[in-house]
Amino acid sequence: MINSDSLVIVPAFNEEENINGVINELKKYFKNILVIDDGSEDNTALIAEKLEVQIVQHLFNLGQGAAIETGLELFLKNKFYQYAITFDGDGQNKVIDAFNMVNLAREEGLDAVIGTRFAKKEHYYNIPIFKKLILRLAVLYERFFYSVKLTDAHNGLRVISKNITEKNILPIKNHDMAHATEISYKLFKSKCRLREYPIKVEYNNKRSQNPVNAVNIAFFNLFRRL
């Protein structure tokens, strides 16, 4: 079966409109899909259950960081899994990118592959201007405070090996959106074999994160200390 050594972790919160499409698309390329229903108040879990994928339900909303942490903990418990793929449940990421990223990790023996929207011009022309500006500032912020040298900050699509997850990523302290900086920081701190991979993100979903949330992320990252 395809990609049986990988687990796709899909954190989802109130994604009943998108989860069906996301899972069906993922099923074409991946055998193991784990949906973390982060306390959704709609039918997200019910829809995912019907699609016969593994589901973990949080009793209430804890944040995307907590959802990913739960997924990674389950990932470590399975002896056959070698790569965890974090994949947004809102349908912004392309499954083909995840597929290519895990292949790249496998072929080149990488510990982590992180998606970037800023490697190719045709990939970032559709990003709203304000969001683009905030993302650029976030890249500088991560570089300045955490020495994280990535071209994209807060990209939800990443492939992480079992070894690095076990030794460096867990536990995740930031259970909100600030987890992305924490994961990048830990990856860089571990000096693992890391590569960025150009991906395209769709911005059709109106529930996409508000760029102003970057202020919260920056504050809590500094306040919590990574």
Binding site: I55, H58, L59, T70, E73, K77, N78, K79
Partner: peptide, 29 residues
């Protein structure tokens, strides 16, 4: 609190796995 909720969720998920077939059960440590 998050840790408690995550712990409960994972335990519940494992309880569900036990109902699955032997192969899937064996893949978990």
């Amino acid at each position: 609190i998050s840790k408690i909720v995550q712990h409960l969720s994972i335990n519940k998920s494992f309880a569900n796995i036990k109902e699955l077939n032997q192969n899937e059960k064996d893949s978990f440590k």
